[in-house]
Design a protein around this nucleic acid. Structure first.
Lengths: 361, 361
DNA sequence: GCCTGCTATAGAAACGCTTCTAAAACTTCC
DNA sequence: GGAAGTTTTAGAAGCGTTTCTATAGCAGGC
């Protein structure tokens, strides 16, 4: 016996066949006499036998491993707070079920290469983390027959992908609704990264609710961001130097809201006294730092957990009809959004005029 | 041909043997006539053949996968900023070399179970992320013969583990040195998590430098934290209500420093006017939020990158003597540490007295 | 023209496990 | 006491690769 002990070594030592050994070691010991069972068990223990998972995977035709694939766009985990929470949820579900995780971070945009890497027989299914528009991950159908679940992007139906995500639309709608209820009429918006579906969904919800309330959206108050906090600060710079200002600004995510707040501090514009700011995501460090940001909180951990569950279900049942599962977000009211009528009547009192003067949906 | 095409299918289609096919597909085409090579290549392409990595691993006796193992203590990735950066570095090194990563998060403290999970033939080596004292990961020697590299913990030699880490001792020494150079004599310290080696190393360096300068360390100014920001805030509460205060406080990491700063703000104690605060780690969000924290910056990404490199070297050469590699940290001077003599002479002017009155190393 | 020494190709044995199928060994029953 | 059944065990064929070794085919040298 050179190297690691194999099933054959155990069998020899116990004086029985490989089959017997394999069966007993897999827990099918009711097939054998107590005596045999003991012999095998102790032989295995004495040799320190550990089954080789590669050989097992080959024989069983399943690997008990699932792939977690990061979009090439945001393959650097570091600043991808989203991925951490989701990954935690995935791990939490999979670990007790003896599934392992293979982390795949393609660095190319060639879908054939990407999928060759993902679907090479080493995983039973994959979770795609937040594929963006144009991502090679979305070419799934042409390159793989693996069960797949996408998280963090609510994709159009035609991609035929199962998905778990938060309900961006409903959450942003309720946030906007609430800001309006605080008496704000003049509301600005900082948009998220243009390649993220969520950015569009959040913007659309904002506009819809504004329209429902008959409030105009002034395009000079709608600024492009990219979900990064610098872009929030930049947008703040752009916005705050305008002649007329909104009384409130909704940022498509917290990172940008944090950047926005910083810029406000820099320019010595008090929040929420001069302007109200809302975010979306309820990120850890904003909370940690006591920024008291009013925002939408949602359970990313749960997204990961449910995605893993959905994927395992697909793997085990062979069910392949794509499903979509949307989790609700919760409005968290803190202190960066004030009542509009309590505002100092700086340039912001224009607000009331705007309600009439506004032009488009 | 049911299911995925195999090497045999390609061979049949190309009208040659499996060996030939395998050789050509692995790039050994100089062995064959151009004609044959073309036949095989196009057959493979037409069938959409993709080699099965599990079978390949079994035959080659290597998996081209390395395991990244999180200590059960901090298996939740979410708030483990450290792990993200390291993981990024690991990925960056491994991806272009066609190695994959298996993420392993044991949830138990039984070393046998943990190592059964890690070393089951599915990986060629492992990187252990920040094993803490008493971690089952440290039992390595008894349970595995896999090449292993530990990162994020500078362990005692007797564990016989290769390691890559930052030089906690040197970095904390230079930070302390610098604070002293700013004229501070009365310096407090907030300790890190007692199970982390780094916490002890940082504390020891602090004490040593203080002693070298003949400065006493007042034990009522040395408070236990746990690397979490809440613990920093708590320690601040404990410290700041004392009769005599230090003029500066060094926190064993940034998270605690952030907590400390928040508490200061809460208590309306101006930093650095009333008290100076230093951190260690230079975390992203502290920077992001413009806290201007004076701290030690170090390259966690690089730690991961080098660890992966070291591990691959061990795997490929069979070299197994444990090596240790320590990366230097860099002092980043921002604004939370002021010159001591520029301080308002609040209770803090006691400082000068302390230099004499102090008691112990 | 036969042996030597190439090159080009194929056969077959691993790798370590699972599992289907078959065959011994032992009951039981009429 | 032998057919029929039941329990216990073993044989052997995969799983899809890699790779060692063997064998054709075909020059060239004497």
């Amino acid at each position: 016996m050179r190297g690691k002990p194999t099933l054959r070594d155990v069998a020899e030592r116990a004086g029985c066949s490989i089959t017997t050994t394999s069966n007993i070691l897999q827990g099918r010991s009711h097939l054998y006499k107590e005596d045999m069972v003991q012999r095998v068990l102790s032989a295995a223990h004495e040799l320190g036998y550990r089954p080789n998972s590669v050989a097992r995977s080959l024989a069983r035709r399943r690997t008990a491993t699932i792939g977690v694939v990061l979009d090439p766009q945001h393959a650097r985990l570091t600043h991808n707070v989203y991925a951490h929470d989701v990954l935690d949820g995935i791990l939490a579900f999979l670990e007790p079920r003896d599934y392992d995780i293979r982390l795949i971070t393609p660095r190319t945009n060639d879908p054939a290469a990407v999928w060759r890497r993902i679907d090479n027989g080493s995983i039973d299914g994959a979770i795609l983390i937040a594929p963006v528009m144009g991502s090679p991950l979305l070419e799934w159908q042409h390159y793989s027959t693996l069960p797949v679940v996408a998280v963090g992007s609510t994709l159009p139906e035609e991609y035929l992908l199962s998905q778990v995500d938060i309900d961006n639309d409903a959450a942003m709608a309720s946030l906007t609704e609430w800001v309006i209820q605080q008496g704000h009429r003049a509301i600005g918006f900082i948009k998220g990264h243009p390649l993220h579906w969520s950015a569009h969904q959040r913007e659309r919800a904002f506009r819809r609710v504004m329209a429902q309330h008959g409030l105009p959206v002034r395009e000079e108050w709608v600024l492009q961001g990219n979900y990064g906090s610098e872009s929030g600060a930049y947008a703040a710079g752009q916005l705050l130097c305008q002649k007329e200002l909104p009384t409130a600004v909704i940022c498509a995510n917290d990172d940008m809201a944090v950047g926005f707040l910083q810029k406000c501090r820099e320019l010595e514009i008090p929040v929420p006294d001069a302007i109200s700011v809302a975010g979306f995501d309820d990120i850890y460090w904003a909370r940690q730092l006591g920024l008291q940001l009013t925002t939408i909180q949602h359970d990313r951990y749960q997204v990961g957990y449910l995605a893993a569950q959905m994927l395992l279900h697909q793997i085990e049942t062979g069910e392949s009809r794509p499903q979509r599962m949307l989790l609700p977000g919760t409005l968290v009211v803190r202190r960066t959004v004030a009542l509009a009528h309590a505002l100092a009547s700086v340039p912001i009192s224009e607000a009331t005029i705007l309600t009439e003067g506004g032009s488009r949906l």
